[in-house]
């Protein structure tokens, strides 16, 4: 499956992208919400977006709202990955159509746990 990593920090894109590549995803990157919409239009097989909130030009929240207006993207899983950890922001993001929410900082296991729960990676039981 193809995943789109949306963050204005190149370092964050590499960190999140690296975790996803190790989990078997092919990764596409975008620097902001508008850039991400362009990538979505280019690649019709993106199944997962990992989305920062605060970005120039178009925020991650605006991106989620925009994606949810498009019927052809209704099966795309949207996961916020952001430093914004206030409860009302989590509520807003979920209400707008995000499926999951990861608060930075995080470890690779955090992302993998969420992807397992979403059914996007195989469940590997731990000891």
């Amino acid at each position: 499956m193809k995943a789109l990593v949306i963050d204005d920090s190149r370092v964050m894109r590499k960190i999140v992208g690296g975790i996803l590549v190790d989990a078997g995803f092919e990764v596409v990157e975008a620097e902001n919400g508008q850039d991400a919409l362009d990538r979505m239009a280019e690649h019709d097989d993106i199944g997962l977006c990992c989305i920062d909130w605060n970005m120039p030009i178009m925020t991650g929240f605006e991106f989620v709202v925009e994606v949810r207006k498009h019927a052809e993207w209704r099966d795309v899983t949207l996961m916020m990955v952001t430093t914004e950890g206030e409860q009302d922001q989590i509520v807003r993001a979920l209400a707008a159509g995000a499926h999951e929410y990861v608060i930075k900082p995080f470890t690779p296991e955090v992302i993998l746990d969420k992807l397992q729960f979403l059914g996007l990676v195989e469940i590997e039981e731990t000891v």
Binding site: L94, H99, E100, T107, K114
Partner: peptide, 9 residues
């Protein structure tokens, strides 16, 4: 950090 580990949003 603990909340992040596996708790669905």
């Amino acid at each position: 950090l603990e909340i992040n580990r596996g708790l669905p949003a």
